[in-house]
Design a protein around this nucleic acid. Structure first.
Lengths: 257, 257
DNA sequence: CGAACGTTTGAGATGACTCAAGCGTTGTGG
DNA sequence: CCACAACGCTTGAGTCATCTCAAACGTTCG
């Protein structure tokens, strides 16, 4: 069932099997894309939305000098650009971070099933609101956390999401990103990400090697990144208690300190 | 007509008068609130959404030390927390920046009219997606612009939105915020905002005094803030040409430079 | 008149950036 | 099969943007 992971693990509105079938019925094509492929370019008119089946996708905006800022990272089960349906054009690019499988859902088909089924429409709306909630968490991350806090917050969020869809145990997950990618998510240079990771390694908080994150001290990571997962609406948030706790000085201040 | 400004000036989906009437019919109460009042507190279960009729509202998250990060600023005509309808709880606070009038829309009434009217539901969804698009612009602002760029981007965005709802001519608008508030929107300290405003003043780009923004050189402001209004889906974007252009060095780099 | 508030300015500290060099792995073509 | 290019990561040295702390000023308001 290709739509199995849609909204999986979230507190509200799991899709019924009927709704999954409806959504799955809109899929016109399943496509495999190679890492670093651009799937959607900003401003181009779209005729379909995308459901990510496998792999890692990013959404990012480019600044005038070609530097990228990620505005989100998508995992299996994410309706990557469901907002293409009401919006028609995206204000950002979508690209594959790893090799990925995506399902194509024509907007006409989406229109048909949502008009016939207000409850499903409400759930898709909900999914897009989860996206907005994550955006707000990213704003907080960039506006109020220092470099170490940003990386902790990003890893904690991503780990919790992977856990929710059953793609990883708590405290360990694959993230096929380079340090430069992490920098583009956290508003940092690749060089500085390297230094941050060194600090996290030496503080026995977490490691990041070959795209694999190992969280050694989840409590410290949560505190350092001021991570409060309530915005993810998870059914079962990963428990702080499952990993050994250890205190860690907190750090934050006005402005990206 | 209390709902007159909802989605006003946007490229897609103006509300029909019938839809305006439907939406207006959900309003159970109009309330005046004083500046600095908190309207909604994070995590509290809600039974209604809010439509802002007059004034300025902020949504913000607090960090552990009580410092605030704005995640958005709302103007007249904004459905401030329409996502309360599918989401039930907010992940942030809502507060009045100025004296304001708000209309209360019970979720039960919203549920009734959206279930009976898929097209209206789609437009409310669209409104929430505009919010998400602004969130992405804020992520870009915080992640990729320096202090001057952030303030320029924030002023340019807010000016364009006020222009869209007919609340201000291009290049001049009231913004009842203090410098500290601007800092909380832009991830800066109040002290540094003061210095940034001095630079903008001395560069003849814009002034900000007693909550009034005067844009002297819109082209410079747009360039400095790398502001591209397409994400706002405005029917008529404020024209760069209406104000005298002047070149201005651009500034951006990886990380919040 | 004094308190509160928002703003301005200065001086010094510091976090993150830039530039640069070097290292290890991987992949590729001669 | 080796050599070399490409890539990602690490580390160092020096710079710069923004922060913190502090003091002072003007307005507003009680």
């Amino acid at each position: 069932m290709l739509t199995r992971k849609v909204l999986q693990g979230r507190k509200i509105s799991p899709l019924t099997t009927g709704e999954q079938a409806l959504l799955e019925g809109t899929i016109s094509e399943v496509r495999s894309v190679a890492a670093r492929t651009v799937l959607v370019r900003k401003g181009v008119e779209l005729e379909h939305s995308t459901l990510l089946l496998k792999g890692l996708l990013s959404r990012h905006v480019d600044d005038r000098h070609g530097q990228r800022q990620f505005v989100s990272v998508h995992l299996a089960g994410d309706l990557v650009d469901i907002h293409a349906y009401p919006m028609k054009r995206l204000d950002h690019d979508v690209a594959a971070l790893s090799d990925a499988d995506v399902a194509i859902m024509p907007l006409t088909a989406l229109k048909a099933i949502t008009e016939a089924n207000p409850e499903l429409a409400r759930k898709l709306w909900f999914a897009s609101l989860l996206d907005a909630a994550m955006h707000r968490a990213w704003i907080f991350r960039l506006g109020r956390l220092d470099a170490v806090g940003r990386v902790c917050h990003f890893f904690a969020e991503t780990g919790a999401r992977l856990f929710a869809i059953g793609a990883a145990p708590p405290g360990r997950f694959d993230l096929h990103m380079t340090q430069v990618d992490v920098g583009e998510a956290c508003g940092l240079t690749g060089v500085h990400v390297s230094r941050v990771l060194k600090l996290l390694r030496e503080g026995d908080i977490c490691t990041f090697k070959d795209g694999r994150v190992e969280i050694l001290d989840y409590a410290a990571m949560v505190r350092r990144g001021q991570f409060d997962p309530s915005y993810l609406y998870l059914e079962i948030p990963p428990d702080v208690g499952v990993l050994n706790a250890r205190s860690c000085s907190s750090r934050s201040g006005p402005g990206p300190p």
